[in-house]
Nucleic acid binder design. Structure first.
Lengths: 332, 332
DNA sequence: CTGAAAGCGCTTACAG
DNA sequence: CTGAAAGCGCTTACAG
């Protein structure tokens, strides 16, 4: 941490008090045009940059926002993080970034650190089972936005995608295109958001078309290899399976490769629908039919809601749930 | 930015001076066991967390490190960022994250902000043409590590991959597997690192096998659609092309899809080699032969070198260039 | 082993 | 329109 010019350095050069420089730098008004020009010249000459540490100590605004993801290598995450980072910059805030690795302990460490650094607020993709932990920070006055989950708590907002409906759309699409023996490869991580996707999936079978059989469900790790394992399990139960809905696109890819390796053709023998529409999905062969999430929209809403919370900490915002859309490609 | 318990709150509760609490919290020694226990109890009870803003103001160590990427949605980046973030956490530092979008102006904004927040150092994937900008910050005392480029400057280290050799390996592999009419799809962004890859590519043709023709080169945007356009351009020049080396995997995917769309079989008619080994490359059909970069290694080295620079700001580190490896899959 | 004083670089509240 | 004083929450340098 190098030392640059200070308010006093600028003041000494111009021959005014630090208070006057502060007024000009923050454009508070109450100074003459001559003073303004001379101060700004000195600021330029000395390369003065205000020290946010000193400013934050007084104003209780550090100009920083925490972004806590699960794992940056999740292909769903980077586009969201990029959007959040851009939106934050436009409001003059810088992003602290950290991963919780889906682990409650690690998330606790991360929040301790963010608290120490006096962040103005945090956007978090919560580790499973950490809502109480988060609510604790919200109670202590930290503005918090939970992404990808539906939570109601004072000083804590939540924004998420309507993936219950996404699962309905996926299953209905499989049924509408003539599939009758359908399986879902779900996630073995048991949190409300995984359960919602399963609920939507089953909901589509409440008034099934003629000939549709009861759907199958397996739960595996939400990874490529998990998806492959899930497909194997489903085929053991039911070798004549003709449609798959996977919890996410990575699992769908795994299932697709495993099906092809077992001699099934996609989509001729088995149709596959994923979820998330990650960048890779359009580039696969065959292209993956999936549920598209408007990630730029979620990024923008998350930052917007967080800023509202920062300005008005007592408000009790209602959870925001964004619509999703089926994208049909060659895998169905 | 909420207000938590302060050193004084803890001191008042125990009945000692803030100075004593400071000693215990920082484990400086010079206190009795009784005092230690009572202070730590009070710290626990009050949920005291040191304010890094106040501490940083005095110590000139903020406990933060900047990570400046080009664009988080570049599939090469997230695994690196995750590694850097984990390594930083182990040394008790938190990451400020920002993208420069490959733009010099934006990078300048980002650095102004990082300077204001008094980062202890920065790891940067530089925007094209910004070495002078970065050298300026290094000169002002900011420890800096440049990734993916070779730079020599006081107080500034650089770590990168030997992609000149990677290009040699790629071209030699194409030649060794019998390809004779080979093209390279290069990047239109003109910086030393793109030129190095082209140099390596040509180097492999300095003593070519019998029948090998002079290679072709086109330069396009380093994206999927750029790769597709690049392949079209190469085929216009030379419809009997039988081997391609692409600047990165995204371009290789674009070239692969474009070749297939034009009726060429991969690898039967045209073999394709990419570069970077992003996660997607193993999941394509056919799987992409490419140059693997040891990203965890680079992350670890970047943080290690940065910490050395933070401890010893005057040292003049030699650029670190890491070896790379060809990964053969079905596209060749 | 412990504490009073000064000060990091700013802003707030006040006086002129 | 301008400035002197106090203080944010800590650490440093010193005294006892």
């Amino acid at each position: 941490m190098p030392r640059g010019a200070t308010l006093r350095d600028v003041a000494d050069r111009v021959g005014v008090s630090p208070r006057t420089v502060s007024r000009v730098v923050n454009d508070e008004g109450g100074f003459s045009e001559v003073t303004r020009v001379r101060v700004l010249e000195a600021v330029e000459d000395l390369g003065y940059q205000p020290n946010m540490l000193a400013r934050g100590l007084i104003t209780h605004r550090s100009g920083t926002v925490g972004l806590v993801g699960v794992d940056m290598t999740d292909p769903f995450f980077p586009a969201m993080a990029e959007g959040i980072q851009n939106a934050a910059r436009e409001t003059g805030r810088t992003i602290f970034f950290a991963s919780n690795d889906g682990d409650s302990q690690r998330q606790a460490e991360v929040f301790r650190s963010l608290w120490s650094h006096a962040v103005d607020g945090v956007i978090v993709f919560p580790a499973p089972g950490t809502i109480d932990q988060l609510a604790g920070y919200a109670r202590r006055g930290m503005p918090l936005v939970v992404v990808d989950d539906i939570v109601e708590f004072p000083n804590l907002a939540s924004v998420s995608f309507d993936l219950e409906d996404g699962a309905v759309q996926a299953a209905q699409h499989l049924l509408a295109t003539g599939r009758r023996r359908i399986g879902m490869i779900g996630s073995e991580i048991t949190v409300p958001r995984t359960r919602r996707r399963e609920r939507g999936f089953y909901q589509a079978f409440e008034s099934p078309p003629v000939g549709a059989e009861l759907p199958e469900l397996v739960r595996v790790q939400p990874t490529v290899s998990g998806g492959a394992a899930g497909l194997q399990k489903l085929l053991e139960r039911r070798p004549d399976l003709d449609g798959i809905f996977a919890y996410n696109d990575l699992m769908a890819v795994g299932a697709m490769r495993a099906a092809q390796a077992s001699g099934y053709r996609v989509p001729d023998d088995i149709a596959i629908v994923g979820c998330n529409d990650i960048e890779m999905s359009a580039l696969l062969n065959p292209g993956l039919t999936t549920i598209r999430l408007d990630r730029p929209r979620l990024s923008a809403e998350a930052i917007r809601v967080l800023h509202e919370l920062i300005e008005e900490p007592t408000s009790n915002p209602t959870p925001l749930v964004l619509p999703v859309e089926l994208v049909i490609r060659e895998s169905t």
